[in-house]
Simulated scan of single mutants.
Amino acid sequence: MGRGRQKAFDTRSADIVDRVLRSEPIGVGIVGGGFMATVHSRAARAARARLIGVVGSSPARGAAAAEELGIEQAYGSLDELLAAPGIDVVHVTTPNALHAPQALAVLAAGKHVVCEKPLATSIADAERLVQASGSQVATVPFVYRFHPLVREARARVATGETGRVLTVQGSYLQDWLLSAGDDNWRVDVSAGGRSRAFADIGSHLVDLIEFVTGDRVARVAASKRTFIADRAEHPRVETEDAVSVALETAGGAIGTLLVSQLAPGRKNRLHIEVGGAQESVVFDQEQPETLWLGRRAGSLLVPRDSDQLAPEAARLVTTPAGHPQGYQDAFNAFVADSYAAIGGAAPDGLPRFEDGLRAVRVTEAVMEAADSGEWREI
């Protein structure tokens, strides 16, 4: 970065921090107008941000998104959005292949960025994003980290209550692409990238396992299948519908993973089981109000009750026990922590671009393992 550009960036960053310190609402721009834009906008509003602008896939779609989401103005391009006054952070919620160029443009404009996963469709692009982020806040919504009982599971492993981690098993199952008539841009390699099911939801699964255990997947063997190769709008589909993975961790644990977008009846079932020498810990995202602790004698369910949880878990409890929290609450907590980081805080467990790069590397290793039929190191 040249000196002139660096000076301009420093000035913009100082302006942002100054406004945050004066308790002015953070100014938000959103790129994309689909389902994830809706989720991001709700979280931004919950964090008392000002939703200044949105860019859609077309001017008409941008205008519709602004109306639907209560955003002040639709802009015709990302460049126009970035030039708008008051924008501090941009949320990138577009198809996967657009993440890298759009997030790089946001960073080059001196803005903070929240970029949907996968961070990029190649390791090289993800590395460029990490390098470009510098001192800017750049986060990736691995939001399942923000369920209070996920933090409780993490605390139990960290304090040694589970004992040495011996095994891990997990699955992420959905059914929204179950039939040939179900279609989406994600099935297209040019829009979604080489991997679909694993990059889209398997990345969440691995991130959650590594986050809870504090250990990293070191090597993988995998098998993948495309069961429906001809969909309504995409003939000759090449991206995978399902993946099974065997893994070994750096700490010596072994495990298995199953990822599928063709699992009848499973809407968004992210499930992990960490088997320790003293107890097993099980979290199910579709049943997020309890954490199962498996013991040789005296297994029990821990409720999402702040009086019974570790401090970092209790911090994320926003309603009394018995009043359910869910996915949007976890997303709200992630965005609130991202904005707190913009203000100079250092929230524990905030997933940043480095975590997004990690997910891209794991995904690439799984795809290579499946293609080669051999184990791959990460």
Rank of each mutant, 00 (worst) to 15 (best):
135 S>L: 14
140 V>K: 06
140 V>P: 04
141 P>C: 10
141 P>D: 07
142 F>H: 12
143 V>D: 11
143 V>M: 15
143 V>Y: 15
144 Y>K: 14
144 Y>C: 14
144 Y>I: 14
146 F>S: 05
146 F>V: 09
147 H>W: 15
148 P>L: 09
150 V>Q: 07
151 R>C: 09
151 R>W: 13
152 E>K: 01
153 A>F: 06
155 A>E: 13
155 A>K: 12
155 A>L: 12
156 R>W: 05
156 R>E: 04
156 R>D: 03
156 R>A: 00
157 V>H: 01
157 V>Y: 02
157 V>A: 05
158 A>S: 07
159 T>L: 13
160 G>V: 09
162 T>I: 12
162 T>N: 14
163 G>W: 06
164 R>Q: 12
164 R>D: 10
165 V>W: 03
165 V>T: 07
166 L>T: 11
166 L>P: 09
166 L>G: 10
167 T>Q: 14
168 V>S: 06
168 V>W: 08
169 Q>I: 11
170 G>E: 01
171 S>Y: 11
171 S>M: 12
172 Y>L: 06
174 Q>A: 07
174 Q>N: 07
174 Q>Y: 10
174 Q>H: 10
175 D>Y: 09
177 L>K: 11
178 L>P: 01
179 S>T: 15
179 S>K: 13
180 A>F: 07
180 A>T: 09
180 A>P: 01
180 A>D: 08
182 D>F: 13
183 D>W: 02
183 D>T: 02
183 D>L: 02
185 W>F: 14
185 W>S: 09
186 R>W: 15
187 V>W: 05
188 D>I: 15
189 V>C: 03
190 S>Y: 14
191 A>H: 14
192 G>P: 01
192 G>D: 02
192 G>T: 00
193 G>W: 08
193 G>H: 07
193 G>T: 07
194 R>N: 11
195 S>R: 01
195 S>A: 06
195 S>G: 06
197 A>H: 03
198 F>Q: 08
198 F>G: 08
198 F>L: 11
199 A>M: 01
199 A>T: 03
199 A>S: 06
199 A>G: 02
201 I>K: 06
202 G>N: 00
202 G>V: 05
202 G>Y: 03
202 G>D: 00
203 S>E: 04
204 H>V: 10
204 H>N: 10
205 L>A: 06
205 L>N: 04
205 L>V: 08
206 V>Q: 00
206 V>D: 01
206 V>C: 02
208 L>R: 04
208 L>D: 01
208 L>G: 05
209 I>A: 11
210 E>N: 03
210 E>P: 04
210 E>G: 01
211 F>K: 05
211 F>L: 00
212 V>S: 02
212 V>R: 01
212 V>G: 00
212 V>H: 01
213 T>S: 05
215 D>A: 07
217 V>Y: 04
217 V>M: 07
218 A>D: 11
219 R>I: 07
220 V>H: 11
220 V>R: 09
221 A>E: 15
222 A>E: 11
223 S>I: 14
223 S>K: 15
224 K>W: 13
224 K>P: 05
225 R>F: 02
225 R>P: 03
226 T>N: 02
226 T>W: 06
230 D>K: 05
230 D>N: 03
230 D>S: 03
232 A>Q: 12
234 H>E: 11
235 P>F: 11
235 P>E: 11
236 R>W: 12
237 V>S: 03
237 V>H: 05
